[in-house]
Structures are given as C-alpha cells and as structure tokens.
Design a binder for these strands. Structure first.
Lengths: 373, 373
DNA sequence: AATAGCAGTCGAAGTTTGGGAGTGCTAATT
DNA sequence: AATTAGCACTCCCAAACTTCGACTGCTATT
C-alpha cells in the first residue's frame, strides 16, 4: 500500500467531511476522530483520521470549539455538505401521504393554499414555514368587481389568474346606483381578462381620455384603484408561520442577545421579506438563463444578516404553468436535517405548483359554457 | 403605640404584598424583608416585615423558593395585585399618539383592522398579540355576491355588517350565465340586509319550498353556501402575532420541556382559540347580567392549561355599537408589567371599537342615496 | 502511507469552601 | 400589644480546586 492515489485521498476526505456534518447534525456535539474511526466505516485508525481532520480544518470546513475537542462544521462545511446532498433523498412516502391528504378535496383560493402551506411547512419542519406570495403586479387578472355597500362605500374585488383574491373597501365621493355599478363592472371585465395590472391601468387611462360613458365614475374609480394598487403590497405578501419553534431551540444559540435579534427580525418581517424577494429575483434570473436549480439553501452568515447567523433557510420556487411565481421554504436552526428539509421543501414546491395548476388550466373563454351537470 | 387597629394592620399588609409583586416584576428576583424595610417607605423594621411576610405566605400569596430566600408571588399573589390595579394607570400619551396614528386615515376592512391590531399589541407588549374575530354567525350580513369565474366556477363573497369580508370559491355543477348571476345576486341581496346567517338560511330554505324562479341554481347555491358556512370557521378566527417574543424570555421558564409545550400550544392554535372563545362567552354572560368588567387577566394556572403555567393573558372585549363582538389581548410572561399591559389592552379595545363604529353608524337604507360629492 | 503510542491540553462535571443573604425565633423595648 | 434588635440557623451561590477523560498533535515504528 505504498503511494496513495491522490484521487482516493480526496475522495475519503470528502467522506469524512460529510460524515462529520451529518453526525453533528444528529448529535449537536463536536465530533471526535475516534467516533469516525469506529462508526463511519472507513477502515482507518483515529490517528489517520486526525490528520485528515486537521487538513479539513486548515481548509476552513471545520473548527474546534477549543483544543482537545472534536470538530464542528463551519458555514463552509455545511455548504459543502448541502451541495453534495443535492436531490439525493426522497421524502418518506408516509409523510407524502399525510401532506397530500391535506390538499385533497380543496379547490381553494391562492390565499388559503399558501397560508395553509406555510403552516404545513412549519409543522413538518419544527421550524418556521414561509411562503412568498406571487406579486399581484406580475399576474394576469381574471375579474374586477365593485360591490356597493350602501352610501358612498364600495368594496373592490380583484381576482387574479392564479386565484388570489384581493379586496379593499373604497370611499367614493358619490353614491353609485345599482345599475351604474353593474354597467361599470361589465365594462371593466370586458377589458380585463388575462391582462396585467399595468395593462389595465393603461386601458383605464385611455378610456379616461376618450371620455365616453360614465366619466365621473370611471375617473373616480380609476383614481382610487390606481392609488390602492400603488401602495399596500409589500411585506404582506409573506406568509410566515411557526416562528416560535425556531426560537425554542435555545441550545443552538449563543447568548440571549442573539435570540432577541432573531425575534425582532421575525417580528418585523420587512427585512426577511426583502431577503426573500431578492432571492426570488435571483432565482428568476438564473431560471431565465436556463440554469434550473431546485432547492436552494442559505446557511448562516451567507445571508449577511447578523440576525440569521445561527439559522439556515431552505427554499424553492413554485410555479403557475411554467412561470415561477413565488418562493416557499423553511427557516430553522443551522443544525437542521438538511436532507429531510430539502426534500420536504422540494416536495411542497411540487404540491403547491400542482394545486395552482387547477386554476390555470381551466377553460379560458367566456363565462357561460354548456351546462356541465 | 399601644393596641394596633386591625384595619391599619390589614392595610399595610396589602401594601407589602403589592410592593413585593411590583418589585418582583421589575427585578425578577425574590424579594427580601430588608428590601421592603429600606425602599418601600413603610417605616417598619425588617423584623416586623418578616412577620407580615410569613403571614402572607401562610395565606398563600407568596412563596419562598427555598428557606433563606426572599419571597416570590404565587398566582394568587399576582391575582391580588392585578385586582387591585384595576383601572389605575393610564397609558402614556406618547404611546397613545403612536398607536392612534397607525389607525388614522384607514377606513379599512375588519380583517385588516384586526390583523393590524394583533401586530400592534404584539409589538407594544413584547409578547404575543391576539385578537378573536367576531363570529360570522352572530353578525348581520350586509351583502352577498356571486362572481362568475368562468366555467363552473364562482366566487362567493359575503360582507358582514361589521365589515368582515369572507370569500370562497365554489364549484357549481352548472355554468351560470352573466345575467343569471346578476338576477341571483339581486334576489339574494333583497333578502339579506342586516339578517344573520341563520335567518338567511331559513329564507333560502323557504324560497326553495316555494320553488319560484331559477330553482336549480338557487338550490345549487343554497346547498353549497350552507355547506361552506357550516364548516370552516373555527380557529381561523384567531389572529395571533408575535409568539416568538413570548418564548424568547427564557429566564421566565423552568425547563426546556415547558417551553416546548408552550410552543406546541401556540402553533396548534386550537386549544388557545377554545380557551379564548370560552372566556369571551363568559364575558358576554357577565355583561348581560349588567356586570361590566373592563380588562380581565388570567394568571398562570388559572387557565388550567399546563402549557400556560408561566404566562398570563390580559384581555378585553371590543364592541360594535353596544354589542360585544370580540376579544383582544396580550399573552406574555407571568412576570409582565400588568399595569402597562392592562391599560394597553384597555386602550386597544377602545381603538378597535372606535374603528368599527365607522362601519356600523353608516346609513342603513338602500344603496343609492343622493349624490354626496 | 498508515498506525500505535504517548504526552499534553483543556473542558466538563463534581467537590469543597466561605460568604452572605435571608429567615425565624426570642427577649428586650416602648 | 406591637415593634424591634439581636442572634442562631439555613441554604444558595460563586469561586476555587480537583479529577476525569475526551481529544489532539507529534513521533517513532511498521
């Protein structure tokens, strides 16, 4: 056994690293060379493994909490481990079944699907579940409707192609009559199908110029509608559930200040929302470049947000048809079961995509088809 | 100084108890007799105070974590303290201003008001904010509307008197035409104004018997509507925000198991929701008996839920007009600043009630009034 | 190149210790 | 009778110390 093939050496180094990360995740303890020697099935003595470990440490994959302790993965170590994992494990079929049953018999609104999804993610991961809702701006509209509520009040309702229902009350400066509203609705919906909000805006603007029918009301409505759509759709698009679960794993945090930082961040939502938006954007760009990547993982300080120092984020996108429209995932302690989380998230991405299919595939033409009985 | 008036003795005993609770809340430490003697301004020696303390302990208001430690309040001690506090402190006007500004310029839906309120409660309390939404069953309806979504699909929309908007998609077994829907909506709304869901049910049922117009569709719709309303309105009526904040105060909990219990409970929501429902019911009963009580506090084990052993709940009701329709409050560590929390909750109850006033006061008659310009 | 063996490091967990914070009791005081 | 000072006693807590053993890195050996 003279002269070791460098390839072989490299190979077993990887194996050691993987085993260390894996085992640390399971035990939350520093991993010693002897544990490797005995349980990892490498057929090497602890001494040899020690030298491998110290190489790995020199390369920045591992650290010792102190001399004479075992090794713990760095962010970089986790990163290697996660990259290696890519798409390996499948979800246990029992768990699949459990999830699937939750979605069965549920022809539902986007809103409910997503909020339900974030709960499921949370409860299956014992961490936080998060879902970024599709931006309304980017979706096609299916219907706009104005419902009079008496007096000057009306309720505006907006249904998007993907099944999201938005509604907000409006204070008009006139009291619309039933028949006026009906006409207005008719007019609006004649020009809306499948168009994006921007397009609808333009149409409304053009109609305002031509100044045909019901000028005052149209103007009123257009004005108010545009105003409402401008604002009001920021961090509210984030479904975030189960944050308490993340914080409860106190052993994974250093001091109390760290926990408080994290709590603040989870409470305010804005920073997290921004981070996810940005991630999603990047993902879109990459998808456009043909670089299809399923589940992505963001480990500890890779986020550059100090509050997330000790947690990791596992995300993927979900689609309507072949357009990626939103992001979903799990936030948990850095020492999470990545392979399970990754397959969970991957699977949930599928499930949501399938749930949304039902909305997209439907007949595209007018409202009255043949009686379906 | 011969012969002490028993009333005076009783009085200062109360004072001692209050001071102990107050100070423990501030410091989170057991309180010693010497601290009382020096800082409470009682003009008594520590020895005398000791004997008072031991009486209080015998009566179950205080305990010592161990011999030779100071005293800590029991649930009963907190209870006394809280009952005494009743309506004493007002909220700092700066804070009021801050809150008030959040509601200004916001003619909004019930849904948003409440979810916003729970966030505010959470951020102002550093605990969890919770709001129990009015039961739809008990509210009058303002509008029902069906919007066709193409094919057999329709979106049912229901607006209650208090401004809650419910909507859910329905799969019909026929494809409704525009004009049919319009007629149906007309018919529905002619019979709906101010009625409760039960009443609407009955009306629909009666109409089904008389079997006049559009029988099939009415039947269809009524069936589906009733079905939907039966289910689906349980724990979703609870807005719960900021749960992570409660858990983050690790020093207030015994072991990790306790924390996990609490986390589970906060995650599942059902138990908590039930507890709150029950509280609300009781409150209604009491209000009916003319026993008006503003803010209520539930301390630790008074809830009989082991998971809530170390937390307290501060709640009040909010109203629409003079009907109590919902509950709101704060969940935090047992060692919370009760007086601040109570005035916060009290105040928020007011704010929400005022916010809902806007919805109730409006003109009650038909949709088209004089042009209001 | 791999290993056995060994000295050395250092944390974790247990033990000991003193100090002090606090109590309850009792006898003296008003 | 109520209050207080004084004191003995309890018991936690923090610090200092010890022991143990889990690891490592190095070196000589195979």
């Amino acid at each position: 056994m003279r002269q070791l093939d460098p390839k072989v050496a490299e190979e077993r180094k990887k194996k050691v690293l993987q085993w260390v990360v894996h085992y640390h995740i399971k035990t939350s303890r520093p991993i010693a060379s002897s544990a490797l020697a005995e349980e990892a099935g490498l057929e090497l003595s602890s001494a040899t493994i020690r030298s491998i470990l110290s190489e790995l440490e020199a390369e920045g994959y591992l650290v010792q909490p102190h001399t004479s302790a075992g090794r713990v993965p760095t962010d970089r170590g986790y990163r290697y481990y996660v990259d290696y994992l890519e798409g390996v494990q499948r979800l246990a079929s029992g768990e699949k079944e459990r999830i699937e049953s939750q979605y069965r018999n549920r022809l539902d609104e986007l809103d409910r699907v997503l909020s339900h999804t974030s709960r499921l993610l949370s409860s299956a991961s014992h961490g936080a579940g998060l879902v970024l809702s599709p931006k309304v701006e980017s979706q096609g509209l299916k219907r706009i409707e104005l419902i009079g509520l008496g007096g000057n009040r009306a309720l505006a309702i907006l249904v998007t192609q993907a099944g999201k229902v938005l509604h907000w009350p409006m204070q008009l400066s006139f009291a619309p009559s039933e028949s006026r509203l009906h006409m207005l609705n008719r007019f609006l919906n004649d020009h809306v199908g499948g168009k994006s909000i921007q397009e609808v805006r333009q149409i409304l603007a053009r109609q305002l110029e031509h100044a045909e029918l019901e000028i005052r009301e149209l103007q009123q409505f257009a004005h108010a509608l545009l105003g409402e759509l401008e604002s009001a759709f920021g961090p509210e698009d984030l479904y975030l559930e189960g944050t308490a679960g993340v914080v409860a794993h106190t052993e994974d945090f250093g001091d109390a200040r760290e926990i408080h930082q994290l709590v603040r961040m989870l409470e305010e939502r804005t920073h997290l929302s921004e981070l996810l938006q940005e991630r999603f954007q990047r993902r879109l760009d990459r998808a456009r470049a043909g670089d299809e990547t399923g589940v992505e993982v963001l480990i500890g300080e890779e986020s550059h947000l100090p509050a997330l120092r000790n947690v990791s984020l596992v995300t993927t996108t979900y689609r309507v048809g072949d357009r990626h429209v939103g992001l979903l995932g799990v936030l948990g302690p850095k020492r999470m079961e990545y392979s399970r989380m990754m397959s969970l998230v991957d699977y949930m991405g599928d499930v949501v995509t399938r749930a949304l299919e039902a909305w997209d595939v439907e007949p595209q033409e007018g409202a009255s088809g043949p009686d379906g009985r």
